[in-house]
């Protein structure tokens, strides 16, 4: 186990050091770059913690999409961007706050160290009840069956978030297309990448959702990959994001959650409880929900990246 411990120690040190550097970086852009690398390291930690599902999400969402978002913002914003330009001025007060943070961290570490041993866990319970969900991946079982309501609410959270972002446009721009993504359509290598990579991304995404039932993977990971590929296509100018008023895109946005809620409500009659599945149909139903959710979540994630709408230059009439 010594090599393993050495790997862990290297990882922990790297993560901590990188976090410190991100805090100390001179520019926001540098910090955002550091954060991307940080996300990749964190994914390795999740592998070491035997949480491959989380590692997949971390790579796709934590490092990939969040990094894209942060980098894009850091590049567009002036270094002293607005709001509370007052950080903490005085050295003394900075030190004081750092001290308090350190005390909080130490206290937290102490609490973590004295957590009961053996650790209380739901793992055996999940294990014993996994068969009833029809899936083989316990994480998917928890997400889609045992704690389905959390997953439902979470996909739902994305909708107000998207509406919130859309609401940041100006009134005349309503009905336009999202306009926060950079336009790099004249970049040859990027175009090539956007032409070649997405089909593979689609395969990988479908694969992730499909194996998610039995092995690590699932809709969020698959959706994040799809969203990344879609954003790639948009950035390369090979496609355009739908208008905010597009009925088709709205239908796709709500499709997943609607299927989820619909099957959940049907469960009241078919399986005796809201969000319950009849046992023999559990796996197909879960897969159906996952498939629908993947499309919806991918679209939401992409649109969250694409930002609020701006009016078209072409003066095309928005669809009614």
């Amino acid at each position: 186990m010594t090599s393993a411990l050495a790997v862990d120690a290297v990882l922990a040190l790297l993560i901590f050091g990188l976090a410190l550097w991100i805090n100390a970086a001179r520019t926001a852009y540098g910090a955002a770059l550091g954060f991307m690398a940080y996300g990749l390291l964190l994914a390795l930690v999740w592998v070491r913690l035997a949480a491959v599902d989380v590692a997949l999400t971390e790579v796709a969402l934590g490092a990939g999409l969040t990094g894209f978002l942060l980098l894009g913002a850091a590049a567009r914003l002036a270094p002293d961007a607005s709001f509370d330009a007052v950080g903490v001025s005085g050295k003394g007060s900075r030190f004081l706050i750092a001290l308090l943070c350190a005390v909080v961290a130490v206290g937290l570490a102490a609490v973590v160290l004295v957590l009961p041993d053996p650790a209380p866990t739901l793992a055996p319970l999940v294990h014993a009840n996994l068969a009833r969900t029809g899936v083989g991946n316990p994480v998917t079982g928890v997400l889609m069956a045992h704690r389905a309501v959390d997953t439902l609410l979470e996909t739902l959270v994305l909708i107000p978030a998207l509406i919130g972002i859309w609401s940041l446009s100006s009134d005349p721009d309503w009905g336009g297309r999202p306009g926060s993504l950079p336009d790099l359509s004249s970049n040859g290598p990027l175009t090539l990448l956007a032409q070649v990579l997405p089909p593979f991304g689609i395969l990988v995404a479908i694969h992730l959702v499909w194996v998610g039932a039995e092995d690590p993977g699932g809709k969020f990971q698959g959706a994040a990959v799809l969203a990344a590929m879609w954003v790639l296509v948009l950035v390369a100018g090979l496609g355009r994001a739908p208008r905010v008023t597009s009925q088709a895109s709205r239908l796709l946005l709500v499709l997943g959650p609607l299927v989820f809620v619909g099957i959940g409500i049907a469960g009241v009659w078919l399986a005796g409880a809201f969000l319950a599945y009849p046992e023999e149909w559990a796996k197909p139903l879960i897969l159906a929900i996952e498939a629908a959710l993947t499309l919806s979540v991918a679209l939401v994630l992409g649109l969250l990246l694409a930002g609020p709408p701006v009016a078209d230059g072409g003066g095309v009439e928005p669809r009614p």
Partner: peptide, 13 residues
């Protein structure tokens, strides 16, 4: 334990 793992995925989103 898959429960916290599932919750972390939700939290990341």
């Amino acid at each position: 334990d898959p429960v916290p793992q599932a919750l972390v995925i939700t939290g990341l989103v």
